[in-house]
Structure formats: structure tokens, C-alpha cells
């Protein structure tokens, strides 16, 4: 694996001049897609979402690789079709290129509406990497809660107020669901650790079979943070243990980074969406949040 400086010399899959919001960290991983492998060319499918919208505003495209915008719910299924036919053409000797396929979706398009299509693609065993960029809500339509929204976060459909303290109940742990698909490679990564992230992308892309990577990608607008805080918010998310960095290869867990366990309040109170949790009556929610994070770490350490 070349160092980051070497990697940066290679043309990225994603051009500058895209219309992602100022400070949005999502392009960090999209640029890497072509840089992490020298062996293959990449074909990407993109579920509807902010990355899709902001990377393809008429008449331009930020993508330097073949790119297919599917509907909201079917990046996994559409790319299954692409991959299956590529394999067939390859067997028939009609195509010689060495291609790899990635499907990309946000948490809405992956945890919720696209879960069925993702699950099917992984179960059938396509040579496909599904990348979820998890920013914890439907940010493209203006911050509505998703099943990835953390406990207590205020969104427009789980608003803080007299009758509600933001999102109720536990968020879905999609990475664990993907581990249960018994595929070769599942990983959780964060946008703030480029070496770890690019290692994971390389592994997932180059292996022969289905793989899933879940990347924590803070949203400047939805998390209510300053535009220069995107990468930092991801870092603190990892250091507080909210987002453990680990990979599961053929069922074997490997924790990539053990933080010094900062309290989760360091992470939630740097974001406006949790500000209401500072009030004393919401203290039990903060405690519950910490308890869930602790429990998840204890579970993870036992694997």
C-alpha cells in the first residue's frame, strides 16, 4: 500500500468543483476509490442522496469513473445486475477489462429504504463493495431522522420540544447486520483516519466477493457544526467510542483502534443537534447514550 502522499499523486475518482456543502467530508472517500487499487478500474452505482445530487448537477459530473445513479432503494440491486453481466461477458471472452464494482448510499438509502437490496446483493455473493456513508439522518431532504440517527438527536421529524427529547430508542447497528450475512469482509471506518480508511477500501475492493464498509461521515448542516469541524467531529465520534473502528474478515473481529474512552458528552455537545440534552431533565438520555456506547464496546472486546 503506497503512502498517502504517493496515493494523492494518482487521479482520484472524484473531481473538485463538486457541489457538496462547504466542509462536507464525504469526498474524502469518493476520491480514494481509484487511488487505493492499481489492479482494477472502478464502476460505481449511487443511490439517491446528497452525494448523488451534489456530484451530478447539470450539466456537469464530478465522477471520473463510470457512474450509475439508481433510485433511492436499489443501489445494491442495480449493481448486482451490472456485476452479474460483467462476469458473464468475461466468461464469454467478450470483455477483458479488470473491473470492480462499488455501490454507494447514505444511511437513509442503506439502513432504511435500501436495506433489502443491500441484503440481497451481499447474500447472492456478487463481487461488489457496498459503501454506506453514515451521517445519521436524511440530510438531502433537510434532516429527517433515519434508523441510523443516534438517541436524542433532534431532527425535523424527531424534533426536540415539550413532548419529545429528540430521536427516541436505539439506533440500528447496520454493521452487525452485515456481519450476520457471513460475507468475507465487513468494516467500520471513519472519514478522519485516511490510512485506516484507504486500507479498508483496498481490501474490500480487491477481494473476490461481497464486502461492506460503513463510514462515519459528519454532516455540517445536520449535526449543526461549523464547516471546519467535519473531520474533527468524526475523530471525536471514534475517540468517545460511539463509532468503533473494526473489521470482520471471514467472521474474525479485528479492532483497528482502541481509543482512550473520552466521555460521549465530548462528542454530543460539540453538535447542535444534541444541545437540548444539556438540560437537567434530559440527563437520563445522556446516561442512556453512554451506557449503550459502553455496552457495545464491552461486547466488541469479547469478539
Amino acid at each position: 500500500m503506497p503512502g498517502l502522499q504517493e496515493m494523492a499523486k494518482k487521479e482520484g475518482a472524484f473531481a473538485g468543483g463538486h457541489r457538496m456543502c462547504a466542509g462536507c467530508p464525504v469526498p474524502i472517500f469518493t476520491k480514494m476509490l481509484t487511488r487505493v487499487t492499481d489492479k482494477y478500474e472502478i464502476v460505481a452505482g449511487n443511490a439517491t442522496g446528497c452525494l448523488e445530487v451534489a456530484s451530478s448537477i447539470f450539466p456537469y459530473s464530478a465522477w471520473k469513473i463510470p457512474w450509475i445513479h439508481t433510485a433511492f432503494e436499489n443501489a445494491g440491486a442495480s449493481m448486482s445486475g451490472v456485476e452479474a453481466m460483467y462476469k458473464s461477458l468475461k466468461r464469454q471472452g467478450k470483455i477483458n477489462k479488470k473491473l470492480k464494482f462499488v455501490a454507494i448510499g447514505g444511511d437513509g438509502g442503506t439502513y432504511d429504504i435500501g436495506l433489502q437490496s443491500l441484503s440481497g446483493a451481499m447474500e447472492r455473493g456478487h463481487d461488489l463493495v457496498y459503501i454506506c456513508y453514515d451521517n445519521g439522518a436524511y440530510m438531502n431532504t433537510g434532516v429527517q431522522r433515519s434508523s441510523a440517527t443516534p438517541l436524542g438527536a433532534s431532527t425535523t421529524t424527531s424534533p426536540k420540544g415539550k413532548k419529545s427529547s429528540g430521536r427516541q430508542g436505539k439506533r440500528k447497528d447496520l454493521t452487525k447486520i452485515m456481519v450476520a450475512h457471513n460475507i468475507d469482509y465487513v468494516a467500520q471506518a471513519s472519514i478522519h483516519k485516511p490510512v485506516d480508511l484507504s486500507n479498508k477500501l483496498k481490501k474490500a475492493i480487491e477481494l473476490d466477493g461481497p464486502a461492506f464498509i460503513n463510514i462515519l461521515c459528519p454532516c455540517i448542516l445536520g449535526w449543526k457544526i461549523n464547516p471546519d469541524m467535519g473531520v474533527e467531529a468524526a475523530r471525536v465520534g471514534v475517540e468517545t467510542g460511539f463509532w468503533p473502528l473494526y473489521e470482520v474478515e471471514n467472521g474474525e473481529y479485528n479492532i483497528n483502534y482502541k481509543p482512550k474512552y473520552r466521555p460521549v458528552t465530548d462528542w454530543i455537545f460539540m453538535q447542535g443537534r444534541f444541545r437540548h440534552l444539556k438540560s437537567p431533565e434530559n440527563q437520563p438520555i445522556v446516561e442512556e447514550f453512554q451506557k449503550e456506547v459502553d455496552k457495545n464496546w464491552e461486547w466488541l472486546l469479547k469478539q
Binding site: 437513509g108 429504504i113 436524511y138 431532504t141 433537510g142 429527517q144 425535523t156 421529524t157 424527531s158 424534533p159 420540544g161 415539550k162 413532548k163 419529545s164
Partner: peptide, 21 residues
């Protein structure tokens, strides 16, 4: 029973904040 989609999201958002009251 809501699901966000432009340009109907505001109906869901209004109902999310009004219905509990």
C-alpha cells in the same frame, strides 16, 4: 406514516411536530 421526499417532506415535518400535541 411518514417518509421524507422532496417536495412533500414539509407535510411530514409539520405532522411530526404537531401530532404529539
Amino acid at each position: 406514516g411518514g417518509y421524507p421526499i422532496t417536495p412533500a417532506t414539509e407535510i411530514a415535518e409539520r405532522m411530526a411536530s404537531r401530532l404529539p400535541h
